[in-house]
C-alpha cells in the first residue's frame, strides 16, 4: 500500500505543471525510497526523469513497489482543486485501479477527496548511465526562463555556446538575430542569484527552442537551474526538489 502525505500540495502542483505539456501519460513508480517517473515526449526528443524523494513527504509509506499509470491532464484537473497550502495525501492499494487524492486544509475543517482512474501503460525504460559533461552552468531559473522565452521569438532553434569566460545563448531567425551573454559571478548575499560556469571543453550545441520552452515550465520548482552539456550529446537541465530532482534530457540538433 502507498500512503504519501505532502505538507503542501504546491510541490505536486508544480511538478505536474512542469511536465504535463511534454508528456500526457506516464507511470509514477512508487518504492520505499519515493516516487520516480521516466517519460519521453511523443517526438522522442525530450526525456523527463523525476525523483520525489521520501523526504519530500511529511509522511511516506510504500510497502511494495506500486506503479500508478496516470493521465496527467486528468490528474492536473484534480490537483488544481486543492489550495497550495493544503496537506495533500495520495493513497493507493497494492495493485490499484485508482489513486485517492485527499486535500486537507491546515485547520482540518475541510477535507476534499478525489479518486483518479489509473491506466495500464507500457513502460519503455531507457538506460541513462552517468554521463560525462564538458560544461556545467548553474544560474537563476527565472533568468534562464526569460532568455528562452525572449530568444524563442526569433527562431525555432536556440544555440548554447560555452567558453571559458562566459555562456552565450543565441538565436538566428528569418527577421533577425539575438543573443544573451552571461559571465560567471558570485552573489554573496543571494547565492541563488549567482551564475557558475565550469568548462572543461568549449561547447557549441543547438537545440529546438520549443523543447527548452517546455523545460522552463519547471522554473517554479527551484530558484536555480543546472545545465550540463557535452559535445554531440543530450543536454541535462536539472531543477532540484527539496529531496529529489526534475531532470530533462534534451537531444541536440546537428548539421545534416
Amino acid at each position: 500500500m502507498l500512503e504519501g502525505k505532502f505538507e503542501e500540495s504546491s510541490l505536486m502542483k508544480k511538478v505536474v505543471d512542469a511536465i504535463k505539456d511534454s508528456v500526457k501519460l506516464c507511470n509514477f513508480n512508487c518504492t520505499e525510497h519515493g516516487v520516480t517517473v521516466q517519460a519521453v515526449d511523443d517526438s522522442r526528443v525530450l526525456l523527463i526523469s523525476l525523483l520525489i524523494g521520501e523526504a519530500s513527504f511529511e509522511e511516506y509509506r510504500c510497502d511494495r513497489n506500486i506503479t500508478l499509470g496516470i493521465d496527467l491532464e486528468s490528474f492536473n484537473k484534480i490537483i488544481k482543486n486543492g489550495n497550495s497550502s493544503d496537506f495533500l495525501t495520495l493513497i493507493a492499494e497494492d495493485s490499484p485501479d485508482n489513486v485517492l487524492i485527499i486535500f486537507e486544509d491546515k485547520k482540518k475543517d475541510r477535507v476534499s477527496e478525489y479518486s483518479l482512474k489509473l491506466m495500464d501503460l507500457d513502460s519503455d525504460f531507457l538506460q541513462i548511465d552517468d554521463m560525462e559533461f564538458d560544461a556545467t552552468i548553474t544560474m537563476p531559473s527565472s533568468e534562464f526562463a526569460k532568455i528562452t522565452r525572449d530568444l524563442k521569438t526569433l527562431s525555432e532553434s536556440l544555440q548554447i555556446i560555452v567558453t571559458k569566460e562566459n555562456v552565450k545563448f543565441s538565436s538566428d531567425g528569418d527577421f533577425g538575430t539575438g543573443n544573451v551573454v552571461l559571465k560567471g559571478f558570485v552573489d554573496m548575499d543571494k547565492p541563488d542569484e549567482s551564475i557558475k560556469i565550469d568548462m572543461a571543453r568549449p561547447i557549441n550545441l543547438t537545440f529546438g527552442a520549443k523543447y527548452i520552452a517546455d523545460i522552463v515550465k519547471g522554473t517554479s520548482l527551484s530558484e536555480s537551474v543546472t545545465i550540463k552539456l557535452a559535445d554531440k550529446s543530450p543536454a541535462l537541465f536539472e531543477y532540484k526538489l527539496p529531496s529529489g530532482f526534475l531532470r530533462f534530457y534534451l537531444a541536440p540538433k546537428f548539421d545534416e
Binding site: 525530450l46 531507457l126 537531444a251
Partner: peptide
C-alpha cells in the same frame, strides 16, 4: 539546416 536527433539515439532501451 540542422537535423533534430532523438533521445533513443543516445540512451539504449533497458
Amino acid at each position: 539546416k540542422k537535423q533534430q536527433t532523438t533521445i533513443n539515439e543516445f540512451f539504449p532501451r533497458d
